[in-house]
């Protein structure tokens, strides 16, 4: 379980460094980097905080991960979760924050 931060997409706003509950993301040369990738809890706080789509999270191989990545963007109260498989196939799931879970 960990995250990848795209150097190209990261603008260096460092929003992710402020929300990581383990303070695992640090600034390096004006960009955010995950300093301790093995210490990631997988809470996705950083993925939600990034407004530039620069952070993906993925399942480690030891969790059965196959290289599929997930990120999330917000449109008002709606979170759009985007799952991209290794071949490029994309699935988007919308979760409206104003609606509650049924389960």
């Amino acid at each position: 379980m960990s995250i990848r931060i795209s150097k190209e997409a990261c603008v260096g706003c460092l929003a992710c460094t402020r929300v990581c509950p383990g303070s695992l993301i640090k600034e390096k040369d004006g960009k955010a980097v995950i300093k301790y990738p093995r210490d990631c809890w997988g809470c996705a706080s950083c993925v939600k905080a990034c407004r530039f789509g620069a952070i993906d999270f993925y399942l480690g191989a030891d969790m059965g991960g196959n290289g599929t990545v997930m990120n999330v963007s917000a449109e008002g109260a709606v979170l759009l979760w985007k799952i991209t498989r290794p071949g490029g196939a994309v699935r988007i799931i919308e979760v409206n924050g104003k609606n509650s879970n049924k389960y």
Partner: peptide
Amino acid sequence: NPGFSRHK
């Protein structure tokens, strides 16, 4: 998960 995903 004692390996890479030890914090999961």
